[in-house]
């Protein structure tokens, strides 16, 4: 499971959802794997304003990944400024900036292979097995 997914996931227990501390889930004993993939600039641009940035930083710091900037980059920050990149008169493809590359690495190349995701509100642990987290709730928690 790619790290971006963690920006959308909270605790599955209904009564936890309204508690701010149920998001983000905290990775514990996580083994990570980096799988290189093509950079997808249109996707990064689209998803950027939807990210919960502070919560993303919490996760990267808990996983010991390089720090992300304290404030979210803008869409403009994701591309190399036009005058540097484009040859005069030519319609060139936009070029991804270092910021975009860093974001791509964290969100779309870093995956959680094994470990647990823990709710900050109720402490429930969700296991990750072979890259697939399991959010099924036991009988007493439904």
């Amino acid at each position: 499971m790619k790290l971006l997914t963690l920006n959308f996931l909270t605790c599955a227990i209904k009564t936890c959802k309204s508690a701010p501390s149920s998001f983000p889930l905290h990775p514990r004993d996580a083994s990570l794997e980096v799988i290189e993939t093509d950079l997808n600039l249109p996707f990064l641009k689209n998803i950027l304003p939807r990210l919960m940035w502070d919560e993303l930083r919490v996760i990267t710091s808990e996983l010991g990944l390089p720090d992300l900037p304290p404030t979210p980059p803008t869409r403009e920050d994701l591309v190399v400024a036009a005058e540097d990149a484009a040859v005069e008169g030519e319609e060139s493809e936009e070029e991804a900036s270092q910021t975009a590359k860093d974001l791509h690495r964290v969100l779309l190349e870093t995956t959680v292979k094994e470990g647990k995701l823990v709710c900050g509100n109720c402490g429930h642990e969700y296991k990750v097995l072979e890259g697939v987290p399991n959010f099924l709730l036991p009988g007493h928690l439904v």
Binding site: M1, F8, L9, N40, P133, N134, F135, L136
Partner: peptide, 22 residues
């Protein structure tokens, strides 16, 4: 198409872990 696949998780739609618009 792996580069476009974020991955999957096990869950019941009626007890989804997705964050919901409050």
């Amino acid at each position: 198409l792996e580069s476009r696949y974020l991955g999957a998780f096990v869950s019941d739609l009626t007890n989804t872990p997705f964050r919901l618009l409050q």
